[in-house]
Simulated scan of single mutants.
Amino acid sequence: MTQAPVQRGRRERPVTTFTVTGTSRTSPGLVRVELRADDAEAFAERFGASAYTDRYVKLALPQPDGTEVVRTYTVLEPDPATATMAIEFVVHGDEGYAGPWAARAEVGDSLGMRGPGGAYAPDVDADWHLLAGDEAGLPAIRAALAALPASATARVVLLAPEDHHVDLPTTDDTEVTWVTDDLPGAVRAVEWLPGRAYAFVHGEADAVMHGVRPYLLKERGLPRADVSVSGYWRRGRTEEGFRDWKAELRASEGDDG
């Protein structure tokens, strides 16, 4: 079994086995896989204690050659009462490991999972929320929007091909902008509203870490505690290589990115 490297000083979470209970196409480019934990008590214990909307898990995805590949995904709609949840996968034909697995997944298939982790939930005391990302960040952004009260103000920027667009939960004052390129430019184009902003920006590492983060922290002067910004992937790197890159970035900057 191929596993992600264990970070020094962190205790490895136990593995929970999940069974596929259904699949569907959220859009032409997204596959939604419904899952149920075989150990309902363990699921309730781990997910019931998590209030984060960016909950993520490490999936051990079985491959046709009998190996397993570990990939990180955001969890949607975890229900401790039924030990169920969903995960959405971007599918680009036969490219990669996770998308093809999701495309061929059938009811009764099983896979192992570690988690959840997470670090963000929208602060309801903020005056407005800025949520931005690409297809990788889309599930966490959807979860954040669903957690906002109806009275909240949200500005959302999403980078994705048109066939990957999905319906989003909205508040009474939500504006959504879909773009096909230049996420940092689209974020800068958002009208900056008065009051305290609370930001969540996740997606391709170069775009969010070098394009958006300096804009929010330096130009807009947001406190670090009011910004959740991180790369979910990096162009040209596998997840294993991306983890190495993130570790190097944290070491060079002396913070958690």
Rank of each mutant, 00 (worst) to 15 (best):
Val6Cys: 04
Val6Ser: 10
Gln7Trp: 15
Arg11Thr: 15
Arg13Phe: 01
Thr19Cys: 08
Val20Asn: 11
Thr23Asn: 11
Thr23Tyr: 07
Ser27Met: 00
Pro28Ser: 07
Gly29Asn: 02
Leu30His: 09
Val31Gln: 12
Val33Ile: 04
Asp38Cys: 06
Phe43Asn: 08
Phe47Ser: 10
Ala49Phe: 10
Ala51Asp: 15
Tyr52Gly: 01
Tyr52Asn: 03
Val57Glu: 09
Leu61Pro: 01
Pro62Ala: 07
Gln63Phe: 00
Val69Gly: 10
Arg71Trp: 04
Val75Ile: 08
Asp79Met: 12
Ala81Pro: 05
Thr84Ala: 06
Met85Cys: 12
Ala86Val: 00
Val90Ser: 00
Asp94Thr: 10
Glu95Thr: 08
Tyr97Asp: 15
Gly99Glu: 11
Ala102Asp: 14
Ala102Asn: 13
Ala103Phe: 05
Gly108Met: 14
Met113Gln: 03
Gly118Met: 04
Tyr120Cys: 12
Ala121Glu: 10
Trp128Thr: 06
Ala132Cys: 15
Gly133Ser: 05
Gly137Ala: 02
Ala144Leu: 10
Ala150Ser: 12
Ala152Cys: 11
Val157Ala: 13
Asp163Ser: 11
His165Ile: 05
Thr171Arg: 06
Asp172Trp: 03
Asp172Thr: 10
Asp173Pro: 06
Glu175Gln: 08
Thr180Asp: 15
Asp182Leu: 07
Val187Trp: 12
Val187Met: 09
Val187Ser: 13
Trp192Thr: 12
Gly203Asn: 13
Ala207Glu: 15
Met209Asp: 08
Val212Tyr: 06
Leu216Arg: 07
Leu217Ile: 11
Lys218His: 13
Lys218Cys: 02
Gly221Cys: 08
Ser230His: 09
Tyr232Met: 09
Tyr232Thr: 10
Arg234Pro: 01
Glu239Met: 00
Gly241Phe: 00
Gly241Cys: 01
Phe242Glu: 00
Glu248Cys: 03
Gly257Ile: 01
